Structures are given as structure tokens and as C-alpha cells.
Simulated assay, not measured.
Amino acid sequence: MRPFYILLLFLTTIIQIGAQENFVKINGSTNVSSFQCTNSKFKNEAYSFSEKNLPNIILKVTDFDCGNKMMTKDFQKILNAEKYPEMTIKFLNFTRNQKKFLAVVEVKMMNQSRKYNVEFNLENNKMVGRKNVKFSDFNITPPKKMGGMVVVKDDLDLTFSLSTKI
């Protein structure tokens, strides 16, 4: 019977850890394919979204993973990870509007800051928000590869998924 309890404890721990996984995804595309770079290596805790205690998330650029070593290296090079090792996502304001949550979020990378209005939904105890942004918002020229045959598009989809205490 004891092995059963140990297994049950182990599975419960795994489920709780998986349920609290926080991540930021950046989805983009080229004229050939699409890509997704994810960072889930920051505080794995439940965030508070009260007016007095809004999240300020610091992401290491080198923690983004695009699922392909070469693409990950290129992505980190585009964001100049050596000179600007961190990206910050700071919640400036957060309000509830019926079933939706509205936030003003400041994204800072490469010494450039931009504020965005982001709509969040509560999904399985996580605040999930999506926002279309552009490389050019941060004065980044989308790269070209293979002598210009592969062109990265300026448009990006930013997705936040943060465990919450709401």
C-alpha cells in the first residue's frame, strides 16, 4: 500500500507543477514557415493581480527556446542577448470588465519600452493574454536569411500565460 501513496504523491506533485507553469511565447513567421519561441524558465509561482501587487516579470533572453538550436541562436542574436540579456514585462494597470480582464503592459527589451493594452482571459487558474506586436516596435529590422530568400515578417504574436491567485 505504501508504494501506492508514494506514486499518488508523485503524480499530485507533477500535476501541480504542470498547472503552475508560466510562459511567454513569441510566434512569428517567414515567407517560408512559422516559428515559436517560448520562455518558461522564470518564476513558477502564482501571480497576484491586485492593484497593489501587479507582476513585474524579468525574462532572460537566453532562456527563450525556439525548438531548433539554429533558430534559437538566431532569435537570441536578433534580440542582442549579449548586450541586452533581459526582457521585462511589467503590468502597469489591471482591471476587470465583466468576464474579461484588461491590462496595460509595458514590454521592455533592448532599451526600448512599449506599452500595450492587453485583454486577458481566466483559463484554468491562469491569466492568458495575447497581443500582436512588431519587431519594428522595438527598432528591430526583421532579419533576412539565405541571401534574402527567407524573410522574417515584422508581425509577432505575443502570448502570456501566468498562474494566478485570483
Rank of each mutant, 00 (worst) to 15 (best):
L7F: 15
D65Y: 05
T30Q: 05
A19R: 11
L54K: 13
M109T: 15
K83E: 13
V32Q: 12
L54R: 15
F4N: 12
L54M: 14
F64M: 00
K25F: 12
P85Y: 00
L102Y: 12
V24P: 01
D63Y: 07
I6E: 09
T12K: 08
I14L: 13
F91Q: 01
F49L: 05
I89T: 12
E86V: 14
F101N: 10
V61W: 03
Q98W: 01
N56K: 15
N97H: 07
V104D: 06
T30R: 02
M110F: 11
Y84K: 07
A46F: 03
L8K: 03
K100H: 11
F101E: 06
Y116Q: 05
I78M: 13
N111Q: 09
N39V: 08
D63A: 08
V61G: 02
F94Y: 15
N97W: 04
N93Q: 15
Y47K: 09
K77W: 00
K100P: 01
L59Q: 03
Y84C: 09
E106S: 08
L92N: 12
E86I: 14
S29F: 05
K108L: 09
T88V: 15
T62A: 04
A19G: 09
F42S: 12
K25C: 10
I78P: 03
V107E: 01
D74E: 08
L102I: 14
E45C: 05
L7R: 12
K99L: 13
Y116E: 05
N117C: 01
E45H: 03
D74S: 08
I58H: 09
V104I: 12
N31Q: 13
K60T: 10
A19E: 10
E119H: 02
V118D: 05
T12P: 01
S34W: 05
D74G: 01
E82F: 04
L92S: 06
N56T: 15
K90I: 11
S50M: 02
S33Y: 01
K41W: 02
T95M: 07
P85H: 01
C37F: 09
F35E: 05
Q20M: 08
T62E: 05
K69P: 06
F23I: 06
Q36R: 10
E106M: 04
V24S: 04
G28M: 02
I58F: 03
Q112W: 09
K73A: 11
Q36E: 11
V24F: 05
N97K: 13
D65L: 00
R114I: 02
K43D: 14
I78N: 06
K77M: 07
D65P: 03
F23Q: 07
L11P: 09
N93V: 13
T62H: 02
L79C: 00
F10G: 09
C66V: 07
S50I: 01
C66K: 07
Q16C: 04
N31S: 11
F23V: 07
K43C: 00
K43A: 11
V104T: 14
E45L: 07
M70A: 03
K108N: 10
F4L: 15
N22F: 14
N111F: 00
S34A: 04
G28I: 07
S29R: 14
N53I: 07
T62S: 03
T95Q: 12
K52R: 06
C37N: 10
G18L: 12
G67L: 08
G18Y: 12
T95R: 12
L54Y: 15
K108I: 10
D65M: 01
L79R: 00
M71H: 00
F23A: 03
F42H: 13
K99T: 13
T13G: 10
L92T: 04
